[in-house]
Computed example of a mutant assay.
Amino acid sequence: MIRTVSAAGALAVALCAGSAQAAVTVIGGGMAEACSDAAIGGESDIKFQQLCTDALDSEFLNARDRAGTLVNRGVLKLRRGTYPEATRDFDQAVKLQPGMGEAYVNRGAASIGQRRYADSLPDINKGLELGLLEPAKAYYNRALAYEGLEDAKSAYFDYQKALEMQPEWAAPREQLARFSVSRR
């Protein structure tokens, strides 16, 4: 018995829903924490991006918080569609904290935003390997990449995994509604 999976609808529908971004919590007060709150809170206004830049330029941050602030600024840039700029932030974060999975997953999301689906997979897989606070977002992003590569079966299973990990999240459920599964 062979299972086939096909997506009903175009990948453009999935990309309009956007990739999922994984922000990093930075505590201790100040601009870096406000930057973290903005990234976690779903903000996209450029003023929050500037807040992150100001934190990086003027606050004393340990390596983890500096890398986290770079990830958070990158997330804000992702939301604004400035993918190359976001990628530079994620690259810097990886150099500072090579064990921070969120930096890799978000760099993968930037590749997806640029329709460089194959390029996104090693980063997303590395982020999953390292561990994440919100792995469902990585599975969702990897599903988007697989759809871009026209691998509907892998996309389906990753959307399923994302929904299994975070059942209250509507985005993977909405994507799964486009699929039909048949047994042959």
Results as ranks from 00 to 15, higher is better:
R88M: 03
M31C: 12
I27A: 15
V26S: 05
S44Y: 14
A55R: 05
P98K: 13
L76A: 08
L51P: 04
D89R: 03
D37C: 00
E85W: 04
D45C: 12
S36H: 06
G68W: 00
E43P: 02
S58W: 11
V94A: 09
G29S: 10
D89L: 06
S58K: 15
R73P: 05
A93K: 04
G101A: 07
E43F: 08
Y83M: 14
L56E: 01
D45W: 10
F48V: 06
L51K: 14
A93Q: 03
I46E: 15
T53Y: 13
A34R: 15
R79N: 12
N106H: 04
D37A: 15
S44W: 14
L61M: 08
L61D: 00
R66L: 08
A86R: 05
G41H: 05
V75P: 01
G101N: 07
G30M: 11
L61R: 01
A86V: 06
A22Q: 03
T82K: 13
G68Y: 00
R80L: 15
T25H: 09
N72G: 08
A39M: 03
S44V: 11
T25A: 15
A55K: 04
C35N: 05
Q50H: 12
V105D: 01
G81L: 05
A67Y: 02
S36M: 04
E59F: 07
D54E: 15
V94P: 01
D54I: 07
R80I: 13
R79F: 12
L70S: 03
K77F: 07
V94R: 11
E43S: 14
G68E: 01
L61Y: 04
L78V: 12
R88S: 09
D57P: 01
R73S: 06
G29A: 12
G30Q: 09
A38W: 01
K47V: 15
R64C: 00
G41S: 13
L56M: 07
M100N: 07
T69L: 03
E33R: 10
A38S: 11
N106R: 01
V105Q: 00
T82I: 13
N62Q: 08
D54C: 10
G99D: 13
P84Q: 10
A67S: 07
R73H: 10
G74S: 07
G101C: 08
Y83Q: 10
Q97G: 00
S58R: 14
R66S: 07
A34T: 11
G28I: 09
L76Y: 08
E43W: 04
P84N: 10
D65N: 12
